[in-house]
Amino acid sequence: MTTTTYNEAVACVPRAGTLYDVLELILDRGMVIDIFVRVSLVGIEIIKIDARIVIASVDTYLRFAEICNRLDLNQDQSSRTVPDLFAGLPSSVAAGGAKKAARSVGGKVKDAIGMGDDEEDDDEDEREDEREDEREQAEEPRRRRTSATSASGARSGSRTRARRTREA
C-alpha cells in the first residue's frame, strides 16, 4: 500500500500513497464542521518541517558548487589540474563523471523528502511508545527495507559506507 515508485520523470503515488505527498490535504482540506472538536495535532509541525527541509540549505549550495566545478573539468579535458583534483575525490564519483554525480544529488533529495522522512516519523513514534513500535515494525517491514538512505541514517549502513569511501 505504501509502495511508491520513482522514475526519472514522474512519481506516481498509488492509492493511499506516501503520507507526505498528501499530508497537507488530510490536515488542511476536507470538510470541517464547526461544532466538532479536533484531536491534537501536536507533533505534526515537526513532521512537516522534516519533510521538506532539504531544499535551499547551504549544504545543497555546496553540493551544487561541487557539481559545477566537476562539470567544468569534464568539459575541459586538457586541463592539467584534472588528475590532481580527482585524486582527492571518492573513486566512484571520479569514474562516474559529473552527470552521474548530478543525478545522485537528485536521488538524495528524493530520499530525504520521501522515504527518508517516513522513517523520521517512525522514530518519533518509537521515542514515544516503544511497545507499539515493535508491532509497527512487524507490520511494515517493506517500507523499512526500502528506506535505507534516510536523514537519520545511523540505523542503516549508508553512513558507514560513506565514511569508508572517503577514507579510501
Binding site: 520523470a9 503515488v13 500513497g17 482540506r29 476536507g30 464542521i33 464547526d34
Partner: peptide
Amino acid sequence: ELRLAGPLPCYSFVPQE
C-alpha cells in the same frame, strides 16, 4: 520534478466551511 498523487478522497472539492 512532478509528483502525482491519486486517486484520492476529494478533500479539496468539498464545501470548505
